[in-house]
Nucleic acid binder design. Structure first.
Length: 298
DNA sequence: GGAAATTCCCGTCAACCGGG
DNA sequence: CCCGGTTGACGGGAATTTCC
């Protein structure tokens, strides 16, 4: 064997080692690529290599909702029926304090702070409702709690979720006779999906610091059409926002995937070139060998 | 320089799929 | 079965390139 041939063999030996590495790498990439159509794996792997999980890039549901809520906080709800200024002292200051706790929620841009109307201001409220109902043709439903309700009650009880809707068909006298527990059970045990068959009012406290009563629809659920529409549009906004984020995410992954494919093409092209060169060298070696050693020919 | 064509990016919709 | 995530398809607008 001449020097040239041994050098070639030595080089081939190194190259074959390099090729093995390349093949391993290529095999790894093939494996990755065979996991299509989802790009999740690649992105996850890339993310883990760079030390940041995909969790970082996932939209935070809470933040999403929070940001949406924040964006809607500036919208002041339109009172559907009655607006009563705080100056009418519907709720004494100390009771407002009780009610202005964590139970305040913002749904569809409305601040659903439960407002309890005490018996000593019921006449004011009743007359307001009556006057209003004369034009709307709906008999007023008075929302009221007797004074003794507040004695011994605590804010935890009041923070029950369904307290944003209060539906009563009781007369003032009936209400005066209700115990605190009975009233509470009327208020807080009404399921959110319950059908309300009597006229009722939703009571909100929007940011303009007015007590706003919106008339509900008997026979429907406890939400007004406006509220339903708001909720639907809010849901849609959230869905669109999430999908927007998801599409962005998906495109990033797709780009990474394409980059990976391009790298793989380069690797394969390199391998192909090496194989062609190797084949050429072997052919030359074989031809030369045939010339040098004709007696070996069969 | 400006119109037309092409490319890129983004948002949305709809279909599909997996998990609960 | 419903819900939420994923992704291909589509359309619109902005940016870039090409052509006259």
């Amino acid at each position: 064997m001449d020097n040239n041939s041994s050098n070639n063999l030595l080089q081939s030996s190194f190259e074959s080692q390099e090729d093995t590495d390349n093949e391993k790498r290529a095999a790894l990439q093939r494996e990755q690529l065979s996991r299509r159509p989802s790009y999740r794996k690649i992105l996850d792997e890339l993310a883990s290599e760079s030390g940041t999980g995909t969790a970082d890039t996932k939209p935070d549901k809470l933040n999403l909702v929070a940001s949406l809520n924040n964006s809607q906080n500036t919208q002041v709800s339109q009172p559907a029926v009655i607006t009563i200024n705080n100056s009418t002292n519907l709720v004494p200051p100390h009771q407002q304090q009780i009610l202005a706790g964590p139970q305040t929620s913002n749904v569809g841009g409305l601040f659903h702070t439960p407002v309890i109307v005490t018996s000593d201001v019921m006449s004011v409220l009743a007359s307001t409702l009556t006057n209003s109902s004369n034009t709307s043709g709906v008999q007023p439903t008075v929302v009221a709690l007797p004074q003794h309700f507040f004695q011994g009650s605590n804010s935890d009880q009041l923070s029950q979720p369904a307290a944003t809707i209060m539906s009563f068909n009781n007369s003032q006298a009936d209400l005066q006779n209700l115990s605190a527990t009975q009233v509470l059970s009327n208020v807080i045990q009404a399921p959110r999906t319950a059908l309300i068959t009597t006229p009722y009012y939703n009571i909100h406290r929007p940011p303009n610091n007015q007590v706003v009563m919106t008339q509900g629809i008997p026979g429907g659920n406890h939400q007004t059409p406006q509220q339903l529409a708001d909720e639907a549009s809010k849901k849609r906004e959230i869905r669109l926002m999430k999908n927007r984020e998801a599409a962005r995410h998906c495109r990033v992954k797709k780009k990474e995937y394409l980059k990976c494919l391009e790298e793989r093409v380069q690797i394969l092209e390199g391998q192909n070139k090496k194989l062609i060169d190797e084949l050429k060298a072997l052919k030359e070696f074989y031809t030369q060998h045939k010339k040098d050693y004709p007696e070996h020919n069969i």
